[in-house]
């Protein structure tokens, strides 16, 4: 009887110690979570929204504010398209004058007649090159063309409503359809399930992965394909896993119809477009 009581006391002590131990472990996990939150918070602040000129959003998109900064640079040159062509015209008449003046000032007169036809041709070539040098407008145009060429491999990646997903309704008052809201929602879900370590990508230049996927009316994801892979296999892999992990997504809203939808997502280190 005495031994039994002692054992009971021992068991009670063990249970108390067990409770203390569980509490300590929970506390340790909570502290490590909190510390991680603290270290992760700064990174959260640094996150920026990637606005691509290629996937120009429609009016009312959240990224319109950023876009308007870029827009004036395009129409300005359009208003005065002749200005870039004008400079070459005055250059030609001006140059001969300068050529005439130069020999007057120089004391070595015999050198002027010595100018060979090759030199003249060289000068003409230089002038031609100068004339051919693109203006700011032409450069911007070329850059835009290049971006369009580099752009999304299919229409899946073009948005009529919100351009860069996820930050709510547009500023310009355009109504956001339920389907667009749904798209923003699923992008948020995929983003939450997307885990990659930016440091592991390194500086590999422009990293963008174009992923197409089919969403069934019930929300199940199928047929995930890469329309265009990024240079980093690791990056592609994480993007693929994020989509797989997010399945099933919420069902497609009834307003958007009851058929499966195929959408395209652009994964960049800054986020999902």
């Amino acid at each position: 009887m005495n031994n039994r009581d002692e054992r009971k006391v021992l068991d009670r002590r063990f249970l108390t110690a067990f409770a203390v131990s569980v509490f300590l472990h929970v506390l340790l996990i909570a502290v490590s979570l909190y510390l991680q939150y603290l270290t992760g918070f700064d990174r959260l602040q640094l996150k920026t929204i990637d606005v691509s000129l290629v996937t120009l959003p429609g009016p009312g998109s959240p990224s319109d504010a950023d876009m308007t900064e870029g827009l004036p640079s395009v129409p300005e040159p359009v208003k005065e398209p002749q200005t870039p062509r004008q400079p070459p015209v005055p250059i030609e008449p001006a140059k001969p004058e300068a050529v005439k003046k130069v020999p007057e000032k120089t004391s070595e007169k015999p050198k002027q007649p010595k100018k060979s036809p090759v030199e003249d041709k060289l000068k003409k070539l230089e002038q031609q090159v100068r004339q051919k040098q693109p203006s700011d407008f032409e450069r911007t145009l070329a850059r835009l063309q290049q971006k369009v060429q580099e752009g999304p491999p299919s229409d899946l990646y073009k948005r009529s409503g919100p351009g860069s997903f996820g930050l709510g309704d547009g500023e310009y008052g355009a109504p956001v359809s339920p389907y667009e809201k749904y798209l923003a929602e699923i992008v948020m879900i995929i983003r939450q399930n997307w885990s990659f370590i930016p440091q592991l990508i390194g500086e590999k230049g422009d990293i963008k992965a174009y992923v197409a996927l089919t969403i069934q009316p019930g929300g199940a994801v199928s047929d995930i394909t890469f329309d265009k892979k990024s240079v980093s296999e690791y990056f592609n892999d994480t993007a693929f896993k994020a989509i797989e992990k997010s399945s099933p997504l919420p069902p497609i809203p009834e307003e958007a119809g009851d058929s499966a939808r195929r959408i395209g997502l652009v994964f960049t280190p800054q986020g999902i477009e």
Partner: peptide, 15 residues
């Protein structure tokens, strides 16, 4: 929950 995925606990999410 976290955007940075460098913590030990976030590593567990993918195990």
């Amino acid at each position: 929950m976290f955007d940075s995925k460098t913590g030990v606990l976030s590593l567990l999410a993918d195990t």
